[in-house]
Design a binder for these strands. Sequence first.
DNA 1: CGCCGAGTTGAACTGAATCAAGAAACGTGG
DNA 2: CCACGTTTCTTGATTCAGTTCAACTCGGCG
Lengths: 194, 194
Amino acid sequence: MNNFRLTSFLTSNIDIDKNNLESMVSQCKTKFVKKGEYLLKEGEKCKHSFFVEHGLLRQYALDDKGKEHILQFAPENWIVTDRESVYFDQPSAYYIQALENTNTILFEESLILHLSKQDPLFLEFNNKLLHNHIRQLQRRITLLISATAEERYLDFVRLYPDLLLRVPQWQIASYLGITAESLSRVRKELATKS
Amino acid sequence: MNNFRLTSFLTSNIDIDKNNLESMVSQCKTKFVKKGEYLLKEGEKCKHSFFVEHGLLRQYALDDKGKEHILQFAPENWIVTDRESVYFDQPSAYYIQALENTNTILFEESLILHLSKQDPLFLEFNNKLLHNHIRQLQRRITLLISATAEERYLDFVRLYPDLLLRVPQWQIASYLGITAESLSRVRKELATKS
DNA sequence: CGCCGAGTTGAACTGAATCAAGAAACGTGG
DNA sequence: CCACGTTTCTTGATTCAGTTCAACTCGGCG
C-alpha cells in the first residue's frame, strides 16, 4: 500500500491502536492526479477530504473578472477539502488542482463521523483537524487585516519555506492577495535590505 | 431561568429531546457583563464559549501599534470564543468585550465533548458549529483578498443590517480592515450614487 | 456650559494595482 | 540537443484606492 504518510500522520495525531488504524486506512480509496489536473471544480459538489500522500495541491477561487485567488496550498501531510460544500451539500466555489503529480488518499465525509461514534478518539481527532483549520484561517484574517504585503510575504516564507521552491511566484502573490508584480518588487526590496 | 434564546437555538439546531436539553442547559452557568467590560483579555486563557442571550459582544486584537482589529461581532444567538486558546490551551491574543449590557451563557469546553460521547447528536451539533465557523472565516478571507473596501462594506450591510445601528462606525471600519475615515468616504460615495 | 468621542471633510502621501514591454526559464516536438 | 513558443519573472511609468494627519462639526452628557 501507498499510505506511509497517512499512517504516520494518524499515529502522531491520535493515540489509536493498530487494528483500528488498519481498519480505517483500509476503508480509504486513493487517487492519483497528474500535474494540472483537478480533484474538484467550481460548481461540483465536493464529496471527500483529500490527504496528500505525495505531491502538491492548490485550492483556489475565480472571481467575476476571471482572476484566481488561492485559498491554500497542500503539500505532503496536508488535508484539503471544501468543507462548506461537503458539509452543507452545496456546489463548491473552488477548484482543487494538482501543481505536481500527486497521490492522494480520500476520506469519505461520513467515515470520520461514523468512526467517531464507535471510538471517541476519532471524534477528538476530527475536532483537532477542525480546530487547526480554524486557527489557520484566523491567523490569515489577522494578517490580511493588519499587515502589509511585505509582512505577509515574510510570514509565508517563515511558515512554508519549502513551498517557495515548488510554487510559481505569481501563485504565492495570489495567496497573499497581491499581484505578481507587487510581489516581485517586495522581493527586490527585501534583497537590497539584507 | 434566563435562557430562552439558548433553548430555541439548540432545538432549531439539533433534534434533541427535552430531557437531554434540560440536562445540558442546567449544566451551564450564566454571566452578565456591563457595557465596556471584558469577558476575555489578551494573555488570559480562554476557558469558555460564550452564547449571547441578550446584548452585543465584540472580539478584537491589538497590533503592535496599539491599533484594534475586530475579528467579529456577536449579537443575540451568536457564540464567541477563542477556539485557539481554549483548544490548544494557549494565552489568547484577543479581547472579548461587551458593546452593550449583555447576558451570556457559558459552555465549558469539556461539556460538549462530554455530551458528544453520550449522544451522537451533540457530536453533530458541535460539528455544525465548527463548520459554520469555518464557512464564515473562509468567506471573510475571500472578501479580504479579492474585494474592495466598498464591496466589503456592502457585504457587511447585507449580512448584518441590524448591527449598523448598534455598532459605532469606526468599529465596522476596523472589522472591514479599513480606517474610519475611509469608511466615511465609502458611505458618502454610496449615498450620492443612489 | 464645556468637554469628549464619533463622524466628516480636505490635502498630501503611499502602497499596491494596472498596463506595457522586455528578459529569463521551461517544456515540448522536431 | 537545439529551436521554438509559452509561461514566469522583472522593470518602468502611471494611476488609484486607501492612509495619514489635521481641522472642524455635531450630539450627548457631566
